[in-house]
Design a protein around this nucleic acid. Structure first.
Lengths: 197, 197
DNA sequence: GTCTATATGAAGATAGAC
DNA sequence: GTCTATCTTCATATAGAC
């Protein structure tokens, strides 16, 4: 039940998983990306790792524990960029830098993005699991900067969704990674800046 | 296996479902919105309708048939607005009108939006089921207007994702429907117009 | 159109040996 | 850390009566 891979006190996601656990997490993430959490069975995960279900259960007591670990690992990728943004929050370029990192990650790990943002099991986890909740709040706070009004929040909600959705959208499936990153950053910036005026 | 509720030749989704079938579809949509397709069992659907599983199977032979019908009904809500946009495609205001309808629908049916856009089962259906494919192509074509370049396509992909994602985003969960619609339309227009310049 | 009853398989999960 | 074997519950799906 307890997540022993821990996001520490202030919400910092760290690894702390064994090699065997990481193999399970990697397989799970890949399958979650393709089939969603509910569409992924422990048998599928075990097959992908190349072991039996019992071996998987030796690493994680429940399926939920695997989901928690997987989300933890993925959110952890944002930690460094988020800390940098929090540190330099007086710097007006800090948000744009964070945004760049978010886009970089979203494009690079696009197969998982949709699941992480929209899978109902994960959405529930993000909303109920305290450490995740805190992490998401930190992230949104950093992206919001000074403003907290309705328009600013909607703008951030739209940007986050636009980035997350665009990277897997069929309309731009033909674009290569580099182009997608560059254009996504440009259009995102454009949309953010029109608010400043 | 066959979808007898039919999107007709040119991709027009129509109802053609009995009252009993519509009860199943409504229950299914609601549950899909909460738990995703894979997270929703026929037992859950039957319970929600207030009948037994066997009664549900009498209306639809497979779970997939229910999913197809549900998607069909939801896409059908866009049909009128889409036809209007196609008819007035010389009119420069046609796209904005369509956009307004899309936003209206997205906000009004936000509980289903996430599932329809991101559930892996439905995404696969949308990509593989010909009638759905054609319908989505029509929709994208209408939203794109004249332009078909990479930037225009990315812009539409971002807008579509932004609208779909914002309506369920925790950051704006406190906004009432009217405000959300109004602001979403304003910001969406702003983002689209900056391309014209 | 709905029911009871049932078939068959796969799901999550555990026990205990190696 | 992994296995075989097993338990229980739930999944999709069908047969046949009312």
């Amino acid at each position: 039940m307890s997540s022993t891979g821990q996001l520490a006190e202030e919400g910092r996601p760290v690894a702390g998983y064994s090699a065997a656990q990481m193999r399970v997490i990697a397989a799970a993430l890949s399958l979650f990306g393709d089939h969603g959490v509910s569409g992924t069975s422990l048998q599928m995960i075990a097959d992908k790792v190349g072991v039996t279900k019992a071996a998987v259960y030796h690493q994680f007591n429940t399926k939920e524990a695997i989901v928690v670990a997987a989300v933890e690992v993925e959110l952890g990728r944002l930690e460094e960029a988020l800390e940098a943004a929090e540190a330099g929050k007086d710097d007006p370029g800090a948000i744009e830098e964070l945004l760049g990192q978010v886009i970089e990650l979203a494009v690079g790990r696009r197969r998982m993005v949709d699941t992480l943002l929209h899978d109902p099991v994960i959405v529930r986890l993000l909303a109920e699991h305290q450490p995740f909740q805190q992490f998401m709040e930190r992230l949104y706070r950093a992206l919001l900067g000074e403003e907290t009004g309705a328009e600013a929040r909607l703008r951030v909600a739209m940007i986050a969704s636009a980035i997350g959705g665009a990277v897997t959208h069929p309309l731009v499936a033909d674009l290569d990674e580099a182009t997608l990153k560059k254009e996504l950053l440009r259009l995102t910036r454009e949309f953010l800046e029109s608010s400043a005026s």
